[in-house]
Design a protein around this nucleic acid. Structure first.
Length: 207
DNA sequence: CGTACGATTCCC
DNA sequence: GGAATCGTACGG
């Protein structure tokens, strides 16, 4: 199978909300030392520069948000609730500060490795009750998919999807129906329907 | 320097 | 329903 990695030009070819929809059906890939994991992106959210829910809203440049002001196709990974991380694709022109949050994947490669990574949660000893994670739960949520894919802020934050071992493949199909609705877990900006997901796809998070 | 909190997940 | 857990943001 050809790598078919999306070029950097793909990420700047659309406005952020359009990109969030164009990413649906594309495949996120991580070629790690432990093995390859990948999954079809089935759920995303857009975060815009005039959007109160966006970390970089209103040109707020800090050490954390700096990657969001990089070129489209930059990776933005941040720590949330002290124990989980979220993976974003930086969008729009350099200096704008917008991104697309990836919220769920349909696993395609390395499900065994995904399950192992999910079991190895910090402070958690795997038990029989956690020994088997359903395939549809492996990447069902932004924190879950980051852990299953082995994505880490230390190594991937600020990298480019056009180079390195974390990248996105072009979609091999066009999603038939895309649903838009309110974003999940935010306290402001709830009036904007910037969450997008593939209709009837069982790997989409419940929110 | 102190502290409140978050684009979440899991357990009671 | 509530805890876990810590870097970040912001005020003093």
């Amino acid at each position: 199978m050809p790598e078919d990695r999306l070029p950097l030009s793909f990420y700047s070819a659309y406005d952020t909300r359009t990109l969030a929809q164009k990413l649906l059906g594309c495949e996120l890939v991580h070629e790690s030392e432990d093995g390859v994991t990948s999954g079809i992106i089935v759920e995303t959210e857009a975060y815009l520069q005039d959007d109160p829910a966006c970390h970089a809203a209103f040109n707020r440049r800090t050490a954390r948000t700096e990657p969001m002001f990089g070129v489209a196709g930059t990776v933005y990974v941040y720590l949330i609730y002290g124990m989980y991380q979220c993976f974003n694709v930086v969008s729009n022109a350099q200096g704008v500060g917008e991104a697309v949050l990836v919220r769920a994947l349909q696993p395609t490669t390395g499900m065994g490795l995904m399950e192992l990574r999910r079991q190895l949660r910090p402070g958690k000893i795997p038990t029989l009750s956690t020994a088997n994670i359903a395939m549809k739960e492996l990447c069902r949520g932004p924190g879950k998919l980051v852990r299953a894919m082995g994505i880490e802020r230390e190594t991937h934050n600020g990298t480019l999807l056009s180079e390195g071992n974390l990248y996105i493949r072009a979609a091999s199909f066009t999603p038939s129906d895309i649903i838009a609705g309110p974003r999940i877990g935010i306290n402001v900006g709830g009036e904007f329907p910037y969450r997008y997901y593939i209709k009837d796809n069982i790997f989409v998070s419940k929110g």
